[in-house]
Nucleic acid binder design. Structure first.
Lengths: 340, 340
DNA sequence: CTGAAAGCGCTAACAA
DNA sequence: TTGTTAGCGCTTTCAG
């Protein structure tokens, strides 16, 4: 490993000077600068990031806390976050908490403020208390997808209006003439998908459509969860002509359930999800959904984190990401076509 | 931020002693030990990982170079790799190269040996030269899924017998009575999927089945790529009764193509892939495939990397992961059922 | 414009 | 068993 000092020696200057030319601190003579650059080149010198971090008192890494990177939504977010991080010269450490608050806490304790100056929190089932403790120790934290712009969490976050997303989906179904609409919620009633479901319910209510608890199912946020819930729902309530799922994965599962029950999508049943993950485009039929601004949220989150770190932003700021948008594809159709 | 020295002061000892009790170096009196632990506790001290790394001359992070974490296969690998890393007290930095050798090179130059002592390379389109340079600078490198156990790359790697995987898939189709089998290869002819295709071809050859270039299509490793290739293939060669894809994603695309062409799977067309990603279980019909030992490979890769780093392994070692296994699900069926 | 010196927080000999 | 003394490789005042 070549060190700064070695480069300095070769160039006949001192380490400080080399450092200066490398950081473009100006105040270095053009001739010396040239010599230093040559030395760097012939020695193949690369700065030691760890040493630099220690000296600067800051680390070039950001941590992304996520329940499991294997959930199809997260990689898309992670990819965008990593790109944003890289563009500002940082590296991204992924921390899968596996929904286990203990793992999350352990990560936070180890990494925050020492290996990484900032933490991106993506739905990792973390204790708010732990997060606050992390903040208190001087580490920047931003919640990446806060579901309620109307109720700031008292912590820096990027908010995505999931209530609106739910409302958008409901409106689309309503416009298509659906009146009996099943709902599949990919979390507990008070879980992360609550706002979406509320948006859905509110819109139905405004339209004078009754939505009763019997038409809703709470399940896991997965294809399999959606499959099970939809199977149950459609069996119990065959008169349902459309299904609203709070996420694309359960929506996909609902399509499978419909197929197994002999109901064609969209002729016999419309299905809509939320998020617009890659798979939504690639399913058969392609899934209608409400697109959520994943990339924008990731970019904003990284930017906010950086601002928090360098002190150009302070306090509990919330930034609202662009509004969700309806994406009509092939899984939703007019209610009139239903063959019963 | 609390430092070692502050803890030491409070406990009435010196930094070295605190370090010793924290690292369980023994040789610390039980009473002092007690006092130190209390001080650590009241101060809420956490070791500064960057400082420790610099002092130890090694970093607690591993880098994973991958083309894009958004490809559905990689997150599953990354998850396993991260778990293995965490279990040995390391963090995982993900580096998406985006198939761009320049990005890959930049990452390697920056990170290798400074922020991270080891690099896991997962099919990231990296120059071998760059990797060797990285090695030469003293950073451990392991290739995570080398496709040819029979041809070691002269670099530490975990090999997965993809030739056997292709052969297994072919054998399954043959056993089902298929004779006209289309092949969809998710890479260039000389790309990463070559070994799988060779295994397929060899098995057909042994069985006395002719496989001609017209029955093969090279495409991208994605659902969309598989869809396009299969559409073309099935249109040109309708007499094909089965499709072998070198990866699950294109296989899934082939199923979509079949559906759009009015061919039922598996009645009118059998489809098989390789890998056994999560989605294969969740598609309709569920995809028959050849499961590749993702988790095992990840664990082995991390272990090998660690061994390389601590010097208990040297040179160009290749470790072979468990053999791929056929997983029969619903997308493959007997050739006799074909309605033509 | 360049050098000297101090220090980031921790570990690792070596002494005491 | 504990303290002392040096660094790890880099950045950053502050002099010259």
């Amino acid at each position: 490993m070549t060190t700064l000092t070695e480069v300095a020696k070769l160039a006949g200057v001192t380490a400080a000077t080399v450092s200066n030319v490398l950081r473009n601190r100006g105040k270095v003579g053009v001739a010396t600068r040239q010599r230093v650059l040559e030395a760097v080149d012939t020695l193949g010198y690369r700065p030691h990031l760890t040493a630099r971090a220690l000296a600067e008192g800051s680390a070039p890494t950001l941590a992304l806390m996520v329940s499991s990177i294997a959930n199809p939504f997260y990689p898309e977010f992670a990819l965008a976050a990593e790109r944003a991080a890289r563009q500002s010269g940082r590296f991204l450490i992924v921390c899968n908490t596996n929904e286990d608050p203990a793992i999350g806490r352990a990560y936070l304790e180890q990494i925050a403020g020492t290996l990484s100056e900032g933490v991106l929190v993506m739905n990792a089932n973390l204790d708010f208390d732990d997060l606050r403790k992390t903040q208190a120790r001087g580490t920047a934290v931003v919640l990446c997808m806060w579901e309620r712009p109307d109720a700031p969490p008292g912590m820096p976050c990027i908010a995505v209006d999931f209530f609106a997303a739910g409302a958008l989906a409901a409106r689309h179904l309503l416009d298509l003439g659906h009146k009996r609409i099943g709902a599949i919620i990919g979390s507990q009633a008070d879980g992360v998908h609550a706002a979406r479901y509320e948006g859905f319910c509110a819109t139905l209510r405004e339209a004078g459509i009754a939505h009763v608890p019997a038409e809703a199912r709470f399940t896991r946020d997965s294809i399999q969860g959606g499959y099970e819930a939809a199977t149950e729902l459609l069996t119990a309530l065959p008169e349902v002509t459309a299904i609203f799922a709070t996420n694309d994965l359960p929506a996909l599962g609902a399509m499978h359930a419909a197929a197994d029950l002999g109901r064609k999508v969209p002729e016999d049943l419309s299905v809509i999800g939320i998020t617009d993950i890659q798979l939504a485009r690639e399913s058969r039929p392609a899934l209608s959904t409400v697109a959520v601004p994943t990339e924008a949220a990731a970019t904003m989150a990284v930017r906010l984190l950086r601002a928090l770190i360098d002190g150009s932003a302070v306090g509990a700021l919330m930034q609202v990401a662009p509004a969700p948008e309806l994406v009509v594809r092939a899984s939703t159709g007019s209610a009139r076509n239903r063959r019963s």
